[in-house]
Design a protein around this nucleic acid. Structure first.
Length: 577
RNA sequence: GCCGGCGUGGCUCAGUGGCAGAGCACUCCAUUGGUAAUGGGGAGGUCAUGGGUUCGAUUCCCAUCGUCGGCUCCA
C-alpha cells in the first residue's frame, strides 16, 4: 500500500499530463506533494490559465487516470535527458544540477507520459480514489522561488485517501472561514480600514482598543515582577540613527521617508536604536544594570502591497517591545526571565501546551556571512548561550539556520493557530552588535569601561498580528480579562432601568467593561445581542430580581448561574480580571 | 512588487445592455417584555474610481484603486 505522499506526488504527474493534453505548448517544471495535496508549476507562455479552467483540467485528469497503471523507471544518460527536454529550459536546468551532483538521471513513465523525476509514486494508479482529489486554485509562483526569475502558473490540488477525508478537509476550511479575524473583526466591531487612510493601516474601534489595552496591561502585569521601566520615543528620526545601527543598508527601501523643511526624516521601523540613545544619555555603572526599557511602541514599515492581510500583516505595527541592557554575566538570567513571561502569558491563553508550540533557535547561516553584523566568534558565543538556555528551560527547540536577525540570534516561540498553521509570536533576541555600533558602555567594578549586551524581546510580538491569531483562536469568545465587553446588563422593562444603571455604574468604578442594553428592544432581542456579541457574562434585572435584591447571572460558557447578590457577582468578576 | 480571482446601501447577498432589489442594522410610531430576531412606516446606493464601445453601460472592454488566494519579503 502506498503512502498518501506517494499518491499526492503521483497525482502531480497526472495533473501534468492533463495540462499537456489541453495545453500542448505548456512547459512543465516541478510538481511535488504538499501536506494537503500537490501542485505543478507550469509555464503557459502567453496563455492565461485561471480558476475557471480548473474544472476542465480536472475532468481531463479523471479521464486519463483509468488508462494509467503504474510508474516505470527509465534511466537516461545526460545526453539522452538533454535531448528529451531540449525545448524545456526549466527541466534542462534541473538536469544540469543533477549531473553536477553526480546523481543518476531518472525518468518515470506512466501511460504515454514521461517526466524527469526522482521517484516516490504509487505502485498502481488504481490505489487512487478518483473522488479523493480536487483541483483547488491557480496561483503565481516564481521559478525556484526566486523573484528575479520568471513567474510560473502553479496549479494546486487537494488530495486525501478518500472522498470522506477530502470532504472533511473542505468542511474544516469552511469552519476556519467562520472564525477568520477579518470577518469577526467586522461582526464584533473591533477594527476597520479606510480607503482614505490607506492599506495596511488598521483603525481600532472603542471595542478593539479596549482589547488592545487589556492585552498590553496583562503583559505589563506579568513583566512587573522584573522591574521594567516604561519609556517613550518619537515616531520619526534622522536617517543617521539607522545608518549607525546598520538597519539602513538592509531596510532603507522599506522605510517611510518624511520630508521636513530643512531635514529629512524616516518613520521608525523598530524601537531599538531609539532606546539605545536613552541608555546612552548618561554614564552608566555596573550597579544599575540590567536596565530594562519597555514600550508598547508603534512602528511603520512600507510592506509590499501584496503582503498585506487583515491585521496579520500591516504597515503600522504595535510592538510590545522591550530592551534589556546588561552585563555578559547577566544575560542568562535575563533571558530566563523573559522566557518565563512568555510562558506565563501563553499558558494563560491556552496556547502553551506540548505539541501546540515549538521554539525556533533562529541562528545565522554560515553560508551567507554577509547578511550578519559582527564577527563569527561573537555569534558563536551568542548562539551557544541561547541553546544552553533552551536546554535548561526544557524548551522543545529546533535550530533553524538563516533565521537570525542581522544583529543576533533569536529564540522564537511558534504556536499553532486555530487551523493548525504555525505562527511566530514571542521572541527573545540576543545582540552583541548594536551596543558596539552605538558605543554603549558602562563602568564595571574594575573601573574599566565595558560594552553592555542588549536583549530585544517581545511577548505578543506585533499586537495586530497577535490579535488576528487570538481572535481566530477564541473564535471571538474571548476570556473575561480580554473581552471588549465583559458584561451585558439586560433590564427586562423600563421599571428596572434605574437598578440596571446603578449596577452599570458600579462596574464602571471597578473598571469592568459593561454595556447597558437599555434600548426599546424586547427581552429576547437583548439576549440575542448579548449572545451575538459573545459577551462572557450577562446580568438580567427584572421584578423577580429586584424583589429578591439579587441579579440573574448567565455565563456565555457555562450557561445560567441563577440569582446572585451583587457582592457575589463583583467578587466573581474581580477574580477573573 | 509579481500571477490569478473578486468589488451592488453600514453588513450579508440577489439582479440586469433599457426606472436599482431583499434581509439585517439605522430611524420613527405602536408594543412593557424572564433567555437567540414584536408589528407597521421611513430614510439610505454616481452599482469602487476614471476612460472607452453603444442610441443607451451597474452590466461589455481597458486602466487605476481596494480586497482575496498564492509567490517573494519580513528588523
Amino acid at each position: 500500500m502506498s503512502t498518501i505522499q506517494e499518491k499526492r506526488h503521483s497525482l502531480a504527474h497526472l495533473l501534468a499530463q492533463a495540462v499537456i493534453s489541453i495545453y500542448p505548448e505548456a512547459k512543465l517544471t516541478i510538481g511535488p506533494a504538499t501536506d494537503n495535496g500537490f501542485y505543478y508549476d507550469c509555464d503557459f507562455g502567453a496563455q492565461k490559465v485561471t480558476d475557471h479552467d480548473l474544472a476542465r483540467i480536472q475532468k481531463e485528469m479523471k479521464k486519463i487516470l483509468p488508462t494509467w497503471d503504474g510508474f516505470t523507471a527509465i534511466s537516461k544518460t545526460p545526453d539522452e535527458a538533454r535531448e528529451f527536454f531540449k525545448d524545456n529550459k526549466y527541466k534542462l536546468e534541473l538536469i544540469e544540477e543533477i549531473i553536477s551532483r553526480n546523481e543518476d538521471i531518472t525518468f518515470y513513465q506512466s501511460g504515454e507520459f514521461i517526466d524527469l523525476c526522482r521517484g516516490g509514486h504509487v505502485e498502481h494508479m488504481n490505489e487512487i480514489d478518483p473522488e479523493s482529489f480536487k483541483l483547488d486554485r491557480v496561483a503565481g509562483a516564481y521559478w525556484r522561488g526566486d523573484e528575479k526569475n520568471s513567474m510560473l502558473t502553479r496549479i494546486y490540488g487537494l488530495a486525501f485517501e478518500n472522498k470522506v477525508e477530502l470532504d472533511e478537509y473542505l468542511v474544516r476550511m469552511e469552519q476556519a472561514k467562520e472564525r477568520d479575524h477579518r470577518k469577526l473583526g467586522k461582526e464584533l466591531d473591533l477594527f476597520t480600514f479606510s480607503e482614505l487612510v490607506g492599506p495596511g493601516l488598521p483603525l481600532f474601534t472603542p471595542k478593539g482598543t479596549a482589547m488592545r489595552k487589556a492585552i498590553i496591561s496583562k503583559i505589563q502585569q506579568l513583566q512587573s515582577a522584573f522591574d521594567y521601566q516604561e519609556v517613550w520615543i518619537p515616531h520619526i528620526t534622522k536617517p543617521e540613527l539607522y545608518m549607525k545601527s546598520g538597519h539602513w543598508d538592509k531596510f532603507k527601501d522599506e522605510l517611510f521617508h518624511v520630508k521636513g523643511q530643512e531635514t529629512d526624516f524616516v518613520m521608525k521601523p523598530m524601537n531599538c536604536p531609539h532606546h539605545t540613545q536613552i541608555f546612552a544619555s548618561k554614564a552608566r555603572s555596573y550597579k544599575e544594570l540590567p536596565v530594562r526599557y519597555t514600550e508598547p511602541g508603534v512602528v511603520y514599515r512600507d510592506e509590499q502591497s501584496g503582503e498585506l492581510m487583515g491585521l496579520g500583516r500591516v504597515r503600522s505595527i504595535t510592538q510590545d517591545d522591550g530592551h534589556v541592557f546588561c552585563t555578559p554575566e547577566q544575560v542568562k538570567e535575563e533571558i530566563r526571565n523573559i522566557v518565563s513571561i512568555i510562558k506565563q502569558f501563553y499558558e494563560l491563553l491556552g496556547l502553551m501546551y506540548e505539541g501546540n508550540y515549538w521554539v525556533s533557535l533562529s541562528f545565522s547561516d554560515p553560508a551567507t556571512p554577509e547578511k550578519y553584523l559582527g564577527d563569527k566568534e561573537t555569534w558563536a558565543i551568542a548562539e551557544a548561550a541561547l541553546e544552553e538556555i533552551a536546554k535548561e528551560e526544557n524548551l522543545p527547540y529546533k535550530i533553524i539556520p538563516g533565521e537570525a536577525a542581522f544583529y543576533g540570534p533569536k529564540i522564537d516561540f511558534i504556536f499553532k493557530d486555530a487551523i493548525g498553521r504555525e505562527r511566530q509570536l514571542g521572541t527573545v533576541q540576543l545582540d552583541f552588535n548594536m551596543p558596539k555600533r552605538f558605543e554603549l558602555e558602562y563602568t564595571d567594578k574594575d573601573g574599566f569601561k565595558k560594552t553592555p549586551v542588549m536583549i530585544h524581546r517581545a511577548i505578543a510580538g506585533s499586537l495586530e498580528r497577535f490579535l488576528s491569531i487570538i481572535i481566530e483562536h477564541y473564535a471571538g469568545n474571548f476570556p473575561f480579562w480580554m473581552a471588549p465587553v465583559q458584561v451585558a446588563i439586560i433590564p427586562i422593562g423600563d421599571a428596572h432601568l434605574k437598578s440596571a444603571q446603578c449596577l452599570h455604574d458600579d462596574f464602571k468604578k471597578l473598571d469592568i467593561r459593561s454595556v447597558l442594553l437599555d434600548s426599546k428592544d424586547n427581552f429576547g432581542k437583548k439576549v440575542k445581542r448579548a449572545k451575538d456579541d459573545r459577551v462572557p457574562y450577562f446580568v438580567i434585572i427584572g421584578d423577580k430580581d429586584i424583589e429578591a435584591q439579587k441579579f440573574t447571572l448567565e455565563s456565555r460558557d457555562e450557561g445560567p448561574l441563577g440569582q446572585k447578590p451583587v457582592e457575589e457577582v463583583i467578587e466573581l468578576f474581580k477574580g477573573l480580571l
